[in-house]
Design a protein around this nucleic acid. Structure first.
Lengths: 255, 255
DNA sequence: CGATAGGTTGACTTCAATCAAACGACGTGG
DNA sequence: CCACGTCGTTTGATTGAAGTCAACCTATCG
C-alpha cells in the first residue's frame, strides 16, 4: 500500500507554496509518505516502483514550484525518482528556444541514462518530492541483483519506445493532433479519480514546449476541441467528453 | 578513429534493383558464421560490437535495397544488428505520413527494446547484411553475463539520449538547422575515409521523413548551404567545406 | 535511345508563429 | 473591502516558414 522509506537524510528545501492551481498540496512533513486523500501517488504499487528497493540509499528532497533540480549540463552523479508532484525536463537552445523532454510523475525516474552530464535540466512543475540516488548505487545494484537489472532494462526500453513515439508526434503530427495526443497521454498517466476529468499540473507554456508549439497554438487547439464538444476546458481542468473523438483527433491508432 | 574498411561490403546478394516496397530479401544461410571471409565492416572493433559475443546464436541475413525486414506491428521475437549497409526504421500514420525513427549503420541494433510488437518497421536503405538474434537470447545473456548486461545498459541509455536529442531537433529547430544537424550527425557516424566527404546512403525522401520535413525543403536547405559555401552537394555525395559554419547553422552547441 | 525515378527549382498556399490586446484569477497593499 | 498589478490565458490580426503543386532536370537502366 505504501513505501517505507526509513531513515533518509532529509535535505529539506523550503516548502513554501504560493497557493495555486493543481492542488498538489504540501507533502506531509518528512517521514510522511505519499499522503492519503488525494494523489494516490502511484508508488503504492511496488511493481511499478523501480527504485523502491534502493530507498535505504536514497535521500528524499523537496522542491517548490519551478525550482531547478538539476541544471542543463550538470555533472551526472545522481538520478532522481519522483515521489509526488510533477517534474519537467527541459533543454534550452542558446537563443532561448525551449524543449520539454518529458513530464515525470510519481514513480518516474530522471537522469539514470546520463553519462558525463545531464543533457536536460530538471525542474519542478508543482511542489515536488524526490528520491535522490547515486548513479553508482544503481549500477551496483544492477550488477548484483538480477531481478533489478531486468526491471531496469524493461524501464529503459520503455523510455526508448516512448521517446521514439514522440518523434512521430513532433515530426509528423499537426498542432491539433499533438494536442489531442497529449491529452490522451495525460488521461492515461494521471490516474485521476474520475476517468473523465484530469487536472493538468503544467502551464500552457510547458505544454507548448513539450509539443513543439507556441502557447497561443495550444490555446487555440484546446478551444477548438471544446467547440467541437470533445472536451471541456477551464484553466487546468480538462473534462473528456468524447474520448473516441479525441483519439481520432490525435491519430493514435497504434499506441 | 579511422576505420579501414572496404566501403562496400561484399554481399552475395545481387545488386540493387529498385525496390518494390515490402519485398523480402533472401534470408541467409542459416547458422552461417557471422563473417565468412571478408566484410568485417565497422564491426572489427569488439568494444563497439554489442552483440558480437552472441554471433554463435545469430543468423546472418541479406536484404536488397528497400526490402522490408520487419513490418510495423510485427510480433517482437527477434532483434537485428546491422553488419553492413544502412537500415531505417519507419512508422506510418494511417494517411501515409511517414516518420523515420533512425538510420542504423554497422553495429547498430534494431528492436531490442520492443515488448509485444515492433512499433516501427525496419527497411533496408542499401543492400544490407544483418545478424538476427532472438530477444530471449539477449535477455538470457544479460542475466548470466554481468559485463554484457553493463554494455547493454550503456547502449540502451545511449539510445534514450539520442532519441531525446532528436526531440529538440524536431520540436524546436528550423528546417535549415535540422538539415545542418543531420549532416553533422552523418559526418560523425559514417566514418568516411576522408573527413570532409560523406556519401549519404539514403534518399532525400528518407532524410525528409527523418527530419520531419518535405523532400523539397530538404533540397532547398542543401542548396542554400551550398550557396553559402558551407558544403558541396551532388546527389548523394556531400563535401563539408566549412564544418564550423555547419555546426553554427545546426545550433549544436551542446552535442 | 526512351522510360523512369530521384532530385532541383519556382509559384503559390497554408498552418502555425508572431504581434497585439484584453480578460480573469489571484495576491498585495492601501 | 476594494483598487491595483501581475501572471497566465484567451482571442484576433497579420506574417512568415515550410508545405503543396507543378515543371523540369539528370542519372541510370532496360
Amino acid at each position: 500500500m505504501f513505501v517505507i522509506y526509513p531513515n533518509v537524510a532529509v535535505d529539506k528545501m523550503s516548502v513554501p507554496l504560493n497557493g495555486v492551481p493543481g492542488r498538489f498540496g504540501v507533502p506531509g512533513h518528512l517521514g510522511a509518505p505519499a499522503h492519503s486523500g488525494i494523489s494516490p501517488s502511484a508508488l503504492e504499487n511496488l511493481d511499478e516502483d523501480l527504485l523502491g528497493s534502493l530507498a535505504m540509499v536514497a535521500t528524499t528532497l523537496h522542491f517548490e514550484r519551478d525550482a531547478e533540480i538539476i541544471a542543463q549540463g550538470a555533472r551526472a552523479e545522481y538520478c532522481f525518482q519522483v515521489i509526488s508532484g510533477c517534474m519537467r525536463t527541459v533543454r534550452l537552445l542558446e537563443d532561448g528556444r525551449r524543449q520539454v523532454g518529458e513530464f515525470l510523475l510519481s514513480g518516474d525516474v530522471f537522469g539514470w541514462d546520463a553519462v558525463g552530464e545531464h543533457e536536460f535540466a530538471a525542474e519542478a512543475v508543482t511542489p515536488l518530492t524526490l528520491r535522490r540516488i547515486r548513479l553508482s548505487s544503481i549500477e551496483d545494484r544492477a550488477d548484483e541483483d538480477r531481478g533489478f537489472a531486468q526491471r531496469l532494462r524493461r524501464y529503459t526500453a520503455d523510455q526508448v519506445r516512448i521517446a521514439r513515439a514522440r518523434l512521430v508526434l513532433l515530426g509528423r503530427k499537426t498542432a491539433a493532433e499533438r494536442i489531442a495526443s497529449f491529452l490522451l497521454e495525460m488521461v492515461d498517466r494521471l490516474n485521476s479519480p474520475s476517468e473523465a476529468v484530469i487536472e493538468l499540473p503544467m502551464s500552457r507554456a510547458d505544454m507548448a514546449d513539450y509539443l513543439g508549439l507556441t502557447i497561443e497554438t495550444v490555446c487555440r487547439g484546446l478551444t477548438e476541441l471544446r467547440r467541437q464538444g470533445t472536451i471541456g476546458v477551464e484553466r487546468t481542468r480538462v473534462v473528456i467528453r468524447d474520448s473516441r473523438a479525441l483519439a481520432l483527433a490525435g491519430s493514435d491508432c497504434l499506441q
